[in-house]
Amino acid sequence: MLAAIVNPGYIIGFLTNMVIFALLGLSLNIIIGYIGYLNLGHVGFWAIGAYTYTLLLMNGTNYFVALLAGGVAAGISGLLLGIPTLKLKSHYIAIASLGFTYIVYSLVINLNDLTRGPLGIPGIPRPVIFGIDFSGDLAYLILSIIIVSISCLIIYILLRSPWGRILETIREDEIASKSLGKNIFKYKIQAFILSAFFAGIAGGIFASFHEYIGGPGAFFLPQLLFILSVVMMGGAGSFWGSIVGAAALMTMYEAVRFLPIEATLVGPTQQASFALVLILIMIIHPRGIMGRKIKTFQK
């Protein structure tokens, strides 16, 4: 067991996953923590990014073009989900966005010609950029850290800007914000596109990291639960919280592997542990590790 932990390959894999989920958590936090809506469609954006990236990359598109295209495709889907839903009451947004995750999953599983359905797409290459080969695990980790850091920096600048301040007024009080002359629908749409874009970028990084995407149950509710737990555990509305949350939950995810249980029980035990963590956080300490008090979630 110890040997497995100190195995550098294992640690590199662990860190790469953590970095990817930090970006997923942070991008979802824009919606949950800043405009105060529960978006359950994030996994759908992630999947759209991953498949767009994969299909383009495997048809010979340049790495950066494919990665950005994944983000843009996810961003467009964010726009398409946002337009009909973002004027709705919050419960309905939660349900409609869950429906979106379901639609994307259903398309992924059934559009066999494009996605190979439940078989998934194997053999997704890792890039060679300016002659540097990123196919090694460590090299790919470094590339992932660079891309995720740039993404986080962009999100950080935006959230700390006057633009981000307007998002917070939406979370605090939509009616007051409207009465001050803010076109809140426009801001909500922008936030949705931004959030979806970076979920799409995370999808691209994810696809090349595993060199495979798809399979039954991928990009569906278990992952949604995980990302939601990352956000809530780290703290809604906290930039660093999502990163801490990703680290904490990835550690827990991996720790379950070392429990003395049968291999078939590892998956459900992992799921049970996130579910328990999510339930406990919401009951005992809904602001998470680093979050602030948010009306939508607390008294």
């Binding site: 359950l40 509710l221 459900p268 799921q271 049970a272 999510l278 339930i279 919401m282 607390q298």
Partner: peptide, 23 residues
Amino acid sequence: SPSFTPLIISIGIGALLQAIITI
């Protein structure tokens, strides 16, 4: 609490029930 809290808890419960039944 505001209605998002029980809503998120119920997402957790659903996942927990699935995990327990799988086990």
